[in-house]
Amino acid sequence: MEQVFIGSILSALSTGLGAVPILFLAKSITHRWRDILLAFSAGIMMAASMMSLIPEALQAGGFFALTVGLFLGVLILTILEMTVPHIDLEHTKKGIAFDEKAMLIIAAITLHNIPEGLSVGVSYASNAAETGNLIALAIGLQNAPEGFLVALFLIHQQIGRWKAFMIATLTGAVEIVTSLLGFYLTSIFRQLVPYGLAFAAGAMLFIIYKELIPESHGDGNERTSTYSFIAGILFMIFLAESF
């Protein structure tokens, strides 16, 4: 229990850690570097899904549990995408009131973090303890550039640096709650573990292919983003083999 609590806090607060540079940097960063960060995050999540979550789900419940859980994760993310307004970090419409825009970005990012928190909690409930640490690390590494980009977006909307930093940090806090929820549910109902692991994998794969990769290719930086994506995969493999 202590391990999942610490892991969920560290992975969630990494969103705020990623936003720290915004307190010292200029208000703008090149689109090229944003794409590199997004693609690197996608590589990290891809390696975590394919090397840890999917193999664990197969081992614990077989192909049927993997298929059901994976498609359930994709379905939930699809519903969230259809019901929560998506705000493009670079091409936002003008003229939206400050308060409304702030609430939209907070709601979108917070709901986006729910399946990530569940991924951490479910992973700690699996028989392999190192799986939880690996997924918490992967989600944390993915959250850092996300926190930076969210804070940068808010600053562009004339929100103060410290306020943008605090908002970015708080959007990750929901992962602590959902992580504990995922851990408790799969600990009580052990038969849910393979479905939960597959659900986490499906949610992460959806985010990778639907959000991170397309956004990293949005400004003609496809080749650089591809290299960054591969580097993210190798980086996650290196960490998995080292710890």
Rank of each mutant, 00 (worst) to 15 (best):
I9R: 04
L10D: 06
A12Q: 04
A12H: 00
T15N: 05
L25V: 14
L25S: 14
A26W: 11
A26G: 15
A26N: 14
A26Q: 14
I29P: 03
T30N: 13
T30W: 10
W33D: 10
R34A: 14
I36V: 14
L38P: 02
L38S: 08
F40M: 08
S41Q: 07
G43N: 06
A47E: 03
L58D: 03
L58M: 13
Q59I: 15
G61R: 03
G62R: 04
F64S: 14
A65L: 05
A65G: 06
L66K: 00
G69L: 07
F71C: 08
L75R: 09
L77M: 14
E81W: 00
T83Y: 13
T83F: 12
P85T: 09
H86G: 12
I87M: 04
I87F: 02
D88G: 05
E90P: 08
K94W: 12
G95N: 13
G95E: 06
G95C: 05
K101I: 14
A102P: 07
I106V: 12
A108R: 01
I109E: 01
H112K: 05
H112Y: 01
E116M: 05
G117A: 05
S119K: 06
S119W: 04
V122M: 04
S123A: 11
A125D: 09
A125M: 06
N133E: 08
N133L: 13
N133Y: 15
I135A: 01
A136E: 04
A138D: 09
L141A: 00
Q142Y: 07
A151I: 01
A151N: 02
L152Q: 12
L154Y: 00
L154S: 01
I155T: 12
Q158S: 13
G160R: 11
G160M: 07
M166V: 14
M166E: 10
M166R: 08
I167L: 08
I167W: 00
A168L: 04
G172Y: 01
A173L: 14
A173G: 10
V174D: 09
V174P: 06
V177F: 14
T178P: 00
T178N: 00
L180F: 07
G182M: 06
G182H: 03
G182C: 04
F183E: 00
L185N: 05
T186I: 11
S187P: 01
R190M: 14
R190Y: 11
Q191A: 15
P194K: 01
F199H: 00
A200W: 02
A201G: 03
F206M: 03
I208Y: 06
P214T: 00
P214K: 09
E215K: 07
S216R: 05
G220C: 00
F229C: 09
G232R: 01
I233G: 07
I233Y: 09
F235Q: 00
F243Y: 11
